[in-house]
């Protein structure tokens, strides 16, 4: 009895004193936090170096004119307008196809499908599709859209190839956003006699839409940089005119970068850097929109 009171007094006292062990723990703690901070800094180093190099070497060429004029003189001078426009065309058309399809598939998989062998095979297929290298997608697009469906090398064929490529990622990210909505909400709705679709429309989708949007925008930024899939299917080396419709070929930023840095003689040193800067600028812009959206929506937590 006496002893336990004493121990209690001791332990109460220990909150206000510092033992050797405490000091050591504190030091280790500090050491690790610094170590991890260093690793994090190391991680952003490449980003800074890349951006820095591009800005130093190509920044001087960037201007409104550069963005909105055609390349001239065997692509050694002028701007990147057709390539910029082409990339916008390709990416938008690709998303127009992959986003509705992907979201529909994700809703089916997350909200309707029961867990059976069929669903498992579909999931497996999606995971594998996401892992297929882009050059394989390129060859598939060439075989399927350019040749089999007879679209020729065109914006349509290239966009569809990109769409197939982005589809699994759209599905996975959408499904994750849907699953992030707690199951209890669905059951509460079903218990009121709501059908699956009523539940999805009124409760699940409105609360998943932020995540879905973020995923889609990130996907845009990834698609923007793809080169291989469009090279065989619709993107051209150089075109003296702008595409008039989806059956025309188009230039694209990513391919243009490849071309001016490896294929064209007598290119001024700054040009490839400037093209790369435009490309990265586009991607960063999309990413910032996505991050801003995420931050905005995180501030609106609903449960």
């Amino acid at each position: 009895m006496h002893k336990t009171t004493l121990e209690k007094a001791n332990s109460a006292e220990s909150m206000f004193s510092v033992s050797a062990l405490n000091v050591k723990n504190k030091k280790t703690q500090k050491l690790y936090s610094v170590l991890f901070l260093m690793m994090t800094l190391l991680l952003i180093l490449p980003v800074l170096v890349i951006l820095g190099t591009l800005i130093v070497k190509g920044g001087s060429m960037i201007s409104i004119d550069f963005l909105f004029t055609d390349p001239v003189n065997g692509m050694t001078e002028g701007g990147v307008f057709p390539a910029l426009l082409g990339t916008v065309w390709l990416v938008s058309l690709a998303l127009l196809v992959s986003v509705p399809l992907g979201i529909a598939a994700a809703i089916y998989l997350s909200e309707y499908a029961s867990d059976n062998w069929f669903t498992r095979i579909i999931n497996l297929a999606i995971i594998n599709l996401a892992g297929v290298p882009s050059i394989v997608h390129a060859l598939f697009g060439l075989g399927a859209f350019v040749m089999f469906f007879g679209f020729g090398t065109s914006i349509l064929a290239a966009s569809l190839t990109l769409a197939i490529m982005t589809l699994p990622v759209v599905i996975v990210s959408t499904r994750e956003s849907l699953q992030a909505v707690p199951h209890a909400f669905r059951e509460a709705c079903w218990n009121m006699g709501a059908t699956r679709w009523q539940t999805i429309r009124r409760v699940v989708l409105p609360n998943a839409v932020s995540g879905i949007l973020t995923g889609v925008i990130l996907e845009v930024s990834r698609t923007t940089g793809e080169t291989a899939p469009i090279m065989f299917t619709g993107a051209a080396f150089f075109l003296p005119f702008l595409p008039q419709g989806i059956f025309d070929q188009t230039m694209a930023l990513s391919l243009h970068l490849f071309v001016v840095s490896t294929q064209v003689p007598n290119v001024p040193e700054a040009l490839p850097y400037a093209v790369a800067l435009v490309l990265i600028g586009m991607v960063l812009l999309m990413n910032s929109v996505s991050i801003a959206l995420r931050m905005y929506l995180r501030g609106q937590k609903k449960w």
Binding site: V181, A184, F185, E187, A188, C189, W190, N191, M192, G193, R202, V203, P206, N207, K302, W303
Partner: peptide, 16 residues
């Protein structure tokens, strides 16, 4: 289900 109201021990306020 719409004719049977249920209240379970853990309350679920829908995010509406």
């Amino acid at each position: 289900r719409s004719r049977i109201g249920v209240v379970f021990p853990l309350p679920v306020g829908l995010p509406l």
